[in-house]
Amino acid sequence: MSVLEEYLRGWRPRPVVEHDAMAPEQSRALANVLETAAPVDELPPLWHWVHFLSWPPHSDLGPDGHPLDGDFLPPVPDRRRMFAGGRLTIQEPLRLGTPAERTTELGDVQVKQGRTGEMAFVTERREFHQDGRLRISEEVDYVYRSGENEAKNPNRLRPTDFPKSQADWQWGFTADPVRLFRFSALTANSHRIHYDETYCREVEAYPGLVVHGPLLVLLMTELARENGQITDVSYRLRRPVFSGDPVLVCGGPDGAMSVRSDQVHAEASMRFAEHR
């Protein structure tokens, strides 16, 4: 049995049920961060990420800004977490102003050996109900490491311009510290890699502030939903994007989306209502 498997043996947290009033203020704020129109009634895909928020006491946070403990945080020493990917099926959109219920349970747990050491892949399964009906089914994948054993290259040449693409749909995007700060606040994300550049460089060995993985996914879904009603999303984060780096969000009618510079940073597959 590996070291991480030993720590995870017997770890089986119980399902957690939470409620949210689905007040419209959070969505209005996210619309301003994304610079798009605020929803009036139905919540766009993945906008539920600014609802069902958790704000633990400040004393319950670790030196990296993440909570030290939580229902689905694995008992791994010197824990480092990365947002890795996920899947979403929309039966019906969530509606603003109508109370909703979210049930979260532990899904799959796997320990894998990568080139930089052991990694624990943990999947959270979530169901969202409103008016007694299942509206959204979601799985979110996280990768956990014990200690800092990820090889990084803080001196890697960073992109200076948007890449060329023949994609039908394209957006150029460059993150800045203010947008990252606002997105952190909207999602109750206190991880220091998104707002503390000194910490990023000196502790995490990143070349700059890291753009939130969920923000990259939202950029892809926002571009796609301009062109159709999304019913299913599958996404994967491949490598980080840093504040100030120009990236291209692109895709087409087949639902294949990506965020790229000279390499792919995130990718997603969308299904639209007419193709379901």
Score class of each variant (00 low, 15 high):
Leu88Asn: 01
Asp71Phe: 07
Glu92Pro: 00
Ser2Cys: 09
Asp69Asn: 08
Pro99Glu: 11
Ala31Arg: 03
Pro45Phe: 01
Ser2Asp: 11
Phe83Gln: 04
Asp60Val: 10
Gly86Lys: 01
Ser59Leu: 12
Glu5Thr: 08
His58Leu: 15
Thr98Lys: 14
Val40Asp: 13
Gly85Asp: 01
Asp60Gly: 08
Gly97Met: 03
Ala31His: 06
Gly70Lys: 04
Val3Cys: 09
Arg80Ala: 02
Arg14Glu: 15
Ala38Ile: 02
Pro93Ala: 06
Pro24Asn: 09
Leu53Pro: 05
Gly65Phe: 09
Ala84Thr: 05
Leu8Asn: 06
Glu42Lys: 13
Ser2Arg: 10
Asp78Met: 13
Gln26Cys: 08
Leu30Thr: 01
Ile90Met: 02
Asn32Gln: 11
Val76His: 02
Pro24Ala: 15
Ala21Ile: 06
Asp60Tyr: 10
Glu25Met: 11
Val17Thr: 15
Arg87Cys: 02
Pro67Glu: 03
Trp47Gln: 01
His19Ser: 14
Pro57Val: 08
Gly10Gln: 07
Ser59Asn: 11
Val40Trp: 09
Leu53His: 06
Thr98Ile: 15
Pro39Ser: 05
Asp41Val: 15
Val40Phe: 09
Arg14Thr: 13
Leu88Ser: 04
Pro24Thr: 08
Asp60Glu: 14
Arg9Asn: 11
Pro44Gln: 04
Ser59Arg: 12
Gly97Asp: 02
Thr89Ile: 10
Arg14Cys: 06
Val17Ala: 12
Pro13Met: 08
Phe52Pro: 00
Phe72Gly: 02
Asn32Pro: 00
Asp20Gln: 06
Pro75Ile: 09
Pro15Thr: 13
Arg28Cys: 11
Pro77Leu: 06
Ala37Trp: 03
Arg87Thr: 07
Thr89Asn: 07
Val50Trp: 00
Val76Ile: 15
Asp69Ile: 03
Pro74Phe: 01
Glu92Val: 02
Gln26Lys: 11
Pro77Cys: 05
Asp41Gly: 03
Ala31Gln: 06
Trp47Lys: 02
Pro39His: 03
Leu61Lys: 03
Pro63Ala: 15
Leu34Trp: 06
Leu96Tyr: 00
Leu53Tyr: 09
Arg12Gly: 13
Pro77His: 05
Pro93Gln: 07
Glu42Arg: 12
Arg81Ala: 09
Asp41Glu: 14
Leu34Val: 04
Leu68Cys: 12
Gly62Pro: 10
Trp55Arg: 14
His48Tyr: 04
Pro99Lys: 11
Thr98Leu: 15
Val16His: 07
Val33Ser: 13
Glu5Asn: 11
Gly85Phe: 01
Asp69Ser: 10
Pro74Leu: 03
His66Ile: 01
Leu61Asn: 06
Gly65Ser: 10
Ile90Ser: 00
Arg81Tyr: 10
Ala84His: 09
Leu88Ala: 03
Thr89Arg: 14
Ser2His: 09
Leu46Gly: 00
His66Phe: 11
Ser59Trp: 07
Glu18Ile: 13
Glu35Thr: 15
Trp11Glu: 09
Glu5Ala: 09
Gly70Leu: 04
Glu35Leu: 15
Ala23Cys: 06
Pro39Leu: 05
Glu5Ser: 09
Leu43Ser: 00
Pro45Ala: 14
Asp69Pro: 00
Thr36Gly: 07
Arg14Leu: 15
Leu8Thr: 03
Gly86Met: 01
Pro57Ile: 06
Met82Ala: 11
